[in-house]
Amino acid sequence: MIQIQAALFWAYGTGATFAVSAARQLQWWQRSVHEEGVRTRSRAANPYLLLTVLFAAVLLVPTGLFMMWQNPSWATMQVAGGHRGIWAGFVLLYAGGTVVATLLGFLVAQALVLVGAGYWAYLQSVGAHFLLFAVLVHGWDGTGYRRLLTTSRGALRDWPKDSVINNLLHFLTSGTFLALLILGAAVIGTMLITEIGWLMEGWELPGADEDRGVPRVLAVAIAAAGVYGLPFLGAVAASGLVRLAGWAVGLPVFAILAGVVLLTRRSPVRALYGLVGIPRRHWKADLELAY
């Protein structure tokens, strides 16, 4: 249900977020079959992996295809003027690519979680959502937010002729926005319920209370801010720097700032991540300590 140029970033980020939300359960899943001699459980039997793929196939893909049919101009960020402007094979690639990107995001984040690199799994989600918001806020030519908030090529061309408020009102009263509102309630609602539910399920497992440093409600708020709020603010900041200093200067400056915020050992993001209660190390570390 998001515009095509940003759809794969959203799919990858959603898959990664699902894996991070279920990080403790995924470690528990691996631990339960440790040293059994034979693989008694197929990877395809992983319920969290299956539910993630099901979410992509049943909700992300159909709603995206519906928006492409309902308003191909908006769905392509006004690149295509109508259905004839979209190659039929591209629709197939979009449908399959969304599922594959979601699966890839989950598997990469899961692999990082299972080797004790949960923070890097979280950064998979941050990076993908940053690219998602960067496309929607700035785009490839600085008009990303205009392409998001207009429903046709004509409306995009006429944007400078009216105020931002009037342009926004035109979009909010359109059939496209109504469709987004209805579909978004189903897709985003299911997504958030799943992520929060898996976090809370993980907190019931042994060791969770020791890792979580704040009450559950606050931990959920911190997790949401870290996964969605931080990338959005980053996209706005990157767009502002590019507009002020150009691509050659703005992007390197933003990259340095992002590195300080995300990668340094004493970064505020690392500190907040540590409060949520997601495993900070590989589960086998506990076994080694026991010896």
Rank of each mutant, 00 (worst) to 15 (best):
I193T: 07
F177C: 01
W198H: 06
L168M: 14
R157Q: 14
I188Q: 06
I165N: 10
N167D: 06
L172T: 10
A186D: 05
S163N: 05
G202V: 02
L169F: 10
T194Q: 06
G197M: 06
E201M: 08
L156H: 13
E201Y: 03
A186Q: 07
H170Y: 13
W203R: 08
G197I: 03
I182A: 15
D211I: 06
M191P: 00
G189P: 10
L205R: 04
F171V: 08
W198V: 01
E195T: 07
G207E: 12
G189E: 09
E204L: 02
L172I: 07
W198S: 04
R157T: 11
S163R: 03
F177D: 01
A155W: 09
S174Q: 08
I165G: 06
L192T: 03
D211M: 14
T194I: 07
W159F: 08
S174P: 10
A179T: 11
T194V: 10
T173P: 00
G207P: 13
A208Y: 09
I193C: 00
L199E: 10
M191D: 09
L156Q: 09
A186Y: 05
G175S: 15
T173V: 03
A179F: 12
F177P: 01
I182P: 03
L181I: 00
S174C: 06
G197F: 10
F177H: 11
W203C: 04
T190N: 05
L156W: 13
G197T: 01
V164D: 12
I196Q: 03
G207T: 10
T176L: 09
L180S: 04
L199G: 08
T176S: 08
V164N: 06
L169S: 09
M200W: 05
A208I: 08
L192M: 12
M191S: 02
E204D: 06
D209N: 03
T173N: 05
W203N: 08
S174F: 07
G175L: 12
A155D: 15
E210M: 03
W203L: 01
L199V: 06
S163H: 13
L168T: 14
M191H: 14
P206K: 11
L183D: 11
L156N: 09
L183T: 15
M200T: 04
G184Q: 08
L192F: 11
S174E: 01
L168K: 08
R212Q: 11
G202A: 02
M200L: 15
A186N: 00
T190Q: 05
